[in-house]
């Protein structure tokens, strides 16, 4: 299956969850947040939330700004 992760098309294993996408990106344990198709996925639900085929996943963190 495929998903668009931070604007890039990625091939994901079947049954991928938000948590497995974060692993794939090497995301740190804190300071990140995830939107799945425009909705925030709370940290507590990362492991239990599947990433559907064709989904858009955005993984954000804090950077210098403002």
């Amino acid at each position: 299956m495929k998903a668009r992760v931070n604007g890039e098309d990625r091939e994901l294993a079947d049954g991928s969850t938000v948590a497995s996408v974060l692993d794939l990106l090497g995301a740190p344990a804190s300071g990140v947040a995830v939107a799945l198709d425009g909705e925030v996925v709370p940290r507590a639900a990362w492991h239990s939330t599947p990433v559907p085929d064709g989904a858009a996943v955005e993984v954000l963190t804090a950077v210098q700004g403002g």
Binding site: L25, L60, T61, V63, G66
Partner: peptide, 29 residues
């Protein structure tokens, strides 16, 4: 002090650890 929210792979990271180490509260924009 303010920070911006961007994709994980963006440049300008590390600012969160810096603010925490200085004891400065973070204000996301």
């Amino acid at each position: 002090t303010t920070v911006a929210m961007r994709r994980l792979d963006s440049s300008g990271g590390g600012v969160l650890d810096l603010l925490r180490s200085l004891g400065i509260s973070v204000l996301p924009n």
